[in-house]
Amino acid sequence: MDAPRLSADGGDAPIAITMGDAAGIGPEIVAEVFRRWPEWSSRCVVVGDVAVMRRAAQVGGGLLPIAVLDGPAQAGRVPPRCMPVWPVVSIPALPRFGEVSAVAGRAAADAVIAAAQAALRGEVSAIVTAPLHKAALAAAGVDVPGHTELLQRIAAQARGLLPAELPVRMMLSNDVLRTVLVSIHIPLRAAIEAVTEAAVWETLRITHDHFCGLLGWPRCRIAVAGLNPHAGEGGLFGREEIDAIAPAVARAQAAGWAVTGPHPPDTVFMRARAGEFDVVVAMYHDQGLIPVKYLGLERGVNTTLGLPFVRTSPDHGTAFDLAGRGLADPSSLLAALESAWAMRARRATAAV
């Protein structure tokens, strides 16, 4: 029996799940998804190292056979209750659980690169990434702080662009709240300086394009948070709202988008959770992520907006303190898979 033929737009293509850092919980939560929800066996392919994933399967206990694939096109042939693995990397000696390892960092990055390149070729329809460890990446000489920047670089290179010429944004979401960030992994002092009219406008454009373009929503209600207490109180507590945020909001409104703000940041997330807005644009990393993570990590999903393919990930890190103990919860990874699966379907429908 031949492997299923994949369409150029990824309509029949599987989701690629990268294994994450081998010393963390990433591989074992990936294995646990296939153990608990076997229907994903024919929809996905794990991109990584066979030995890493075999060890991860053993951590959870119980039978979980591994199907070694030559490539993503064979994913549809994998029987239920098997874990499909595309071995794009091979680690000579498995790293110890819970320890920073350059070998693990390099292998994790290489898995992401292979998955991204497969997505750009249309061989996979989306990418779901298990957690990386920033110190392990640095030890391996990978000069990016995380997934978002690495995927941005790969996608930009494929188009002959510099990373800055393909702007992306991080969105964190759960079942009741979505927030998109103007800046991500930079110091707070630099993040404040990054609140410019151009940066806020670009964030609004990327957010609107994602929901109303890529996903085909007829309308997306975007609330923009202020930077300062009380959204600056008319300039009494800072001028960023007046000089940078409000002009970007006005520009979006002139384009006909459902954008409002700047809103006081201490209440805008509550209003969004109550259903008044579809998404909140936050000015910096912790302003946007604390409200979502406070609601719990179990259903949290990280999505990269602006890429030419769908990418999601669980809303947690490598959890070195839990690795190898069989205690890691795969719920957030499952939520990321469900989100990616839904987005790939909406994207395909919007493209018709």
Rank of each mutant, 00 (worst) to 15 (best):
G216I: 04
W201H: 13
D110M: 13
F237K: 12
V279D: 13
L120Y: 09
V112P: 10
Y294T: 15
L6Y: 05
T179Y: 05
A351F: 02
S331K: 02
V259S: 09
F237N: 04
D286V: 09
P330D: 05
V224N: 08
S173W: 03
A244I: 03
A351D: 12
S90A: 13
R55D: 02
A342G: 02
M53P: 10
A351K: 06
E276V: 07
A336W: 02
A155G: 02
W341R: 03
V68Q: 01
A57G: 11
V85S: 06
V100C: 10
L94H: 12
V280F: 09
A135R: 07
S331G: 03
S7K: 13
L151R: 00
L289Q: 13
L188Y: 01
V46Q: 07
A56F: 00
V33G: 02
G261V: 05
R344C: 01
A118E: 05
H208L: 01
A342Q: 15
A246V: 09
C44S: 15
L94A: 13
V50P: 05
V124S: 11
L305W: 06
R221A: 08
E202M: 05
P262I: 10
A139W: 02
W201S: 13
S101I: 15
N302I: 06
L120N: 06
A130C: 15
G324M: 13
G10C: 07
R239V: 06
I245Y: 06
P145K: 00
F237L: 15
P92E: 07
F309T: 11
A335L: 00
D70K: 07
G48W: 00
I127L: 09
Q74M: 09
I242M: 12
V301P: 01
D243I: 04
C82H: 14
F269M: 08
A16M: 01
G235H: 07
A350P: 00
L307D: 14
P308R: 07
A51E: 15
Q287C: 05
V100Q: 08
G24E: 14
Y294E: 11
G71Y: 08
P38T: 06
Q117R: 11
A140Y: 01
R5H: 13
P314G: 03
A140W: 06
D49V: 06
D266C: 05
E123S: 03
P291Y: 05
M1G: 11
S125G: 13
E99H: 15
L181F: 09
T196W: 08
A102Y: 12
P131L: 02
L307V: 01
A274Y: 08
G105T: 08
A323H: 12
L215Q: 11
P14E: 02
